[in-house]
Simulated scan of single mutants.
Amino acid sequence: MKITRLLPFGCAALLGLASCSKNSSDDASSAGMSKFEVRLTDAPGDYRAVNLDVQQVQVHVSDDDNANGWQSLTLIRPGIYNVMDYTNGNSALLTSADFPAGKISQIRLILGSNNTLTLRDGTVVPLNTPSAQQSGLKLKIDAVLVRDVTYQLVLDFDVAKSIVARGNGAYNLKPVIRTVTTAVAGGIRGVATPAAARPLVLAIRTSVAPNDTLSTTADATGGFLLRGVPAGTYRVELLTASPYRNATRTGVVVANDQITDLGAVSVQ
């Protein structure tokens, strides 16, 4: 069986798995964290390109605007994103990171200075975004992340409402972005006994064809945790070497917003 790696995610505001996949090397020590993705998508507008110079994504974990509440997420690729490329269900993955479970109240995008608009006739003009460059484009979220669950925050950029012509050939960016936070995957956890067996754990989704497969290895305590598991029904196999025995659990149901706990699974 071939096993490859699986990559784990409203309000208006101004401003697929492969057929056989490997889960990231999660174990029981990962408990307390959620997987958090931020994606950028766009509603079409009457322009050739709207290029945003995205330099940082930050989230705020309290209800007030205390500066100490902001935490930066590592961008997959800082730089220029043409939001016109991400329409009709397409999106740009800005960041995917482990994040402490709990409340997130706001998010902000901090832009660089290289923001441009390409008009229908091919003319390229600057997009003026002074507030975004200084303090960021702030958006309300008000989401609660549950540990070990994978979430996706989609920033739905409305180009038609966000580009404002100034009348002198110049354009301002006053972004209108709708935020949608959704639990997109759950997880499976359990404990292999005895711990010394250190089995390979496979979760094979039987409710779709072809079957998806995720994998991890039990840690030194016997604990295992598969995160980023899409909703469905799974067969969970614990594969060991002699003198231990393989074990199988069937009909394991996973929902996007929860972790399914198998408890103790004997491989004795």
Rank of each mutant, 00 (worst) to 15 (best):
N172K: 00
V176S: 10
S162W: 08
S162A: 12
P175S: 14
V164T: 14
V149M: 09
R189H: 13
I177G: 02
L153W: 00
V184N: 09
G167N: 06
L173R: 00
S162D: 12
A160Q: 14
L202F: 12
A165Q: 12
A183Q: 02
A165E: 15
A203K: 05
V201F: 04
K161P: 01
R147Q: 13
V159W: 08
D156I: 07
V201W: 07
D158C: 00
T150P: 08
D156M: 07
V176G: 03
Y171M: 01
A165T: 14
L202M: 06
R189C: 13
A170Y: 03
D148Y: 02
N172Y: 01
S162L: 10
D158T: 04
G167Q: 12
T181G: 09
I188Y: 09
G190P: 13
L200Q: 09
G186L: 02
A203R: 02
G167A: 11
P194C: 09
D148I: 03
I163C: 04
V146W: 04
R166D: 15
K161S: 15
Q152K: 11
V149F: 05
V180M: 05
R178N: 15
T193S: 12
R147G: 14
A170E: 15
P199Y: 09
V191Q: 15
V180H: 07
G190Q: 08
T179A: 06
L155R: 03
V201M: 06
L202W: 05
P199S: 12
N172D: 14
P175D: 13
V180P: 00
R147H: 11
G186V: 05
G187H: 04
G186R: 01
L173Y: 06
D156W: 02
K174Y: 13
Y171R: 00
T193H: 03
A183V: 02
V159H: 06
D158E: 13
A170I: 07
A195F: 12
T179W: 00
P194N: 09
S162N: 10
N168W: 06
R189Y: 08
V164G: 07
A185N: 04
R178Q: 10
T182L: 13
T193C: 01
N172L: 08
L145T: 04
A170F: 07
L155F: 02
R147S: 14
R178W: 05
A192L: 07
A185M: 12
A196Y: 00
V180I: 13
N172A: 09
L200A: 08
P175G: 15
R198G: 01
G169C: 13
V176E: 13
R198P: 03
P175C: 11
G190N: 11
D158Q: 13
D148A: 15
L173S: 04
I177L: 10
R198D: 04
R166L: 15
A183I: 06
L153P: 01
V146Y: 07
V149S: 07
A160W: 07
F157M: 13
T179I: 04
G187P: 09
R198Q: 09
R198F: 02
A203Q: 03
A192R: 06
Y151V: 06
V191C: 04
T182H: 03
A160R: 13
V176M: 12
T181Y: 02
T193K: 04
S162F: 14
Y151L: 03
A160Y: 05
Y171L: 01
A185T: 05
D156L: 05
L145M: 11
R147L: 00
V184Q: 12
A195G: 09
